[in-house]
């Protein structure tokens, strides 16, 4: 962490608490259209979330006032964001261009991007994993995987 103190509202717990209050508040709106008995449990939970988050916010701000630095969420935000984006991209790829193609690309790509670069190992792993999946799921259990929306008509 750098020495310059972060603005108090940018602390992760504070941000999370504010996020919960906003989302829970927004979700409270549709409960108005439900029958009272139907709205009872969801509304109770949403109000509970709001109250608890406000308490969390207050606690975190008290700590901030004392000058305690928040624990960092991650040492390398770039790797985390990169990993998450890659996973999302993989899901989208499976959906649009097909499961097997995207899997065969993703396994070596992710491993390579995050530091494992032995070409033989990558090839072997990809072949083994894709082959096993095909053997067990497709061949053995005739389970369909996404074929790719792009190729559909």
């Amino acid at each position: 962490m750098s020495d310059t103190p972060k603005p108090r509202l940018m602390r992760p717990e504070t941000l999370t608490a504010i996020g919960i209050v906003v989302v829970a508040g927004a979700l409270l709106i549709p409960t108005a259209e439900l029958r009272p008995i139907s709205a009872l449990l969801p509304a109770a939970m949403l109000i509970g979330l709001i109250v608890l988050s406000v308490a969390l916010l207050a606690m975190d701000q008290r700590r901030a006032a004392k000058g305690e630095a928040p624990a960092p969420m991650t040492k390398s935000p770039k790797r985390v964001i990169g990993a998450f984006l890659l996973i999302v991209a993989y899901a989208l790829a499976a959906d649009f261009i097909g499961f097997y193609i995207s899997t065969a690309i993703t396994i070596p790509l992710v491993a390579w991007a995050f530091g494992y670069r032995a070409p033989l190992g990558l090839l072997a792993a990809t072949v083994i994993v894709v082959g096993t999946i095909w053997l067990i799921f497709d061949f053995g259990m005739s389970q369909d995987f996404p074929a790719g929306r792009l190729w559909k008509d």
Binding site: G98, Y100, D144, A147, G148, W151, K152, D153
Partner: peptide, 8 residues
């Protein structure tokens, strides 16, 4: 791929 097999 599935579609392809079907077409084939």
């Amino acid at each position: 791929m599935h579609k392809f097999v079907k077409t084939a």
